[in-house]
């Protein structure tokens, strides 16, 4: 017996539909569990107070500060490097063997798993350069990790800037760099911001590379050479060592909520940018 293709078609459609919503369902379930379990343990005191007894009591203030320090400092380093690379790749060169090499480098960096960044940061920054477990070692490792994201998003954003804008700028006696500075980069800002937001999200959520470079000191990092603990690392230690499930859930709420907000903001900026040129 031959089944009517139309029925198969309808059946497949239904099946695919279910699977797509299943994926969204996973996200919703993850977020829902974290929020339901965690919100009772999250309040201003939790956010603003210091942990006590290895995190069994008290709050997560130092790890929030540590996370912000890590994210902002790595962005501060990676943005000029990444944007500069993107500008070079788009404005200053044609596709050649040289650009292929650079692209290979960027692609490869993007593919390296975070534990290898951890290994590298540990041996290079912590041991060989004698930085010890420190904010500085964490920041430098994280800078390299987020560089590919910044490069790719900036490159895409710069490529989307219409060529005529550049031509007009040149015709008004601008040099190449003046054109890039005054016309190309301003027009590409939303796309560049998206990359920055995504990178901040990555820095906030990263654990494997950070725990072996920045360490896991519970104290507030006051200098670049101080060790510190980001929220993700704190959460990992609380959960893994069974120190306190309540505090772990509480930390997870702050962690997941900040990452969701950062990513949503990134998505919003990107859509604005797309709307601008289409």
């Amino acid at each position: 017996m031959r089944i009517n293709p139309r029925y198969i078609n309808r059946l497949v459609r239904m099946g695919l539909n279910v699977q797509a919503y299943f994926t969204v369902g996973i996200l919703i379930i993850i977020v829902a569990i974290i929020f339901f379990k965690g919100f009772p343990h999250t309040n201003f005191a939790f956010i603003l107070s210091f942990p006590e007894d290895m995190g069994r009591e008290g709050g997560i203030f130092p790890s929030i500060v540590g996370t912000i320090q890590l994210a902002l400092l790595s962005i501060l380093l990676a943005t000029p490097l990444g944007l500069g690379t993107a500008i070079f790749l788009t404005e200053y060169t044609k596709e050649s063997l040289f650009t292929k090499f650079i692209r290979f480098g960027v692609e490869s960096l993007a593919g390296i798993p975070s534990i290898l960044y951890g290994l590298f940061g540990f041996i290079f920054f912590v041991i060989k350069l004698k930085m010890g477990w420190s904010l500085l070692a964490g920041v430098l490792t994280m800078t390299i990790m987020i560089l590919p994201t910044i490069i790719r998003t900036s490159e895409e954003a710069i490529r989307a800037v219409p060529r005529q804008l550049r031509i007009v700028s040149y015709s008004l006696s601008a040099s190449k760099w003046e054109t890039i500075k005054k016309v190309v980069i301003p027009a590409a800002i939303p796309g560049i911001l998206t990359g920055i937001m995504l990178s901040i999200g990555r820095a906030v959520g990263e654990t494997a590379a950070i725990i072996f470079t920045m360490g896991s000191s519970l104290r507030l990092p006051l200098s670049l050479m101080d060790s510190g603990r980001t929220m993700a690392v704190h959460f990992y230690i609380l959960a893994r060592e069974g120190i306190s499930m309540e505090k772990a859930y509480g930390t997870a709420v702050v962690l997941v909520l900040s990452i969701l907000l950062i990513n949503i903001l990134a998505y919003y900026i990107m859509n604005k940018a797309i709307a601008r040129y289409s």
């Binding site: 219409p162 005529q164 804008l165 031509i167 007009v168 700028s169 015709s171 016309v183 301003p186 027009a187």
Partner: peptide
């Protein structure tokens, strides 16, 4: 130079 299509800078 003035081009065929007016292109104001944003």
């Amino acid at each position: 130079t003035v081009f065929a299509v007016p292109i104001p800078l944003p």
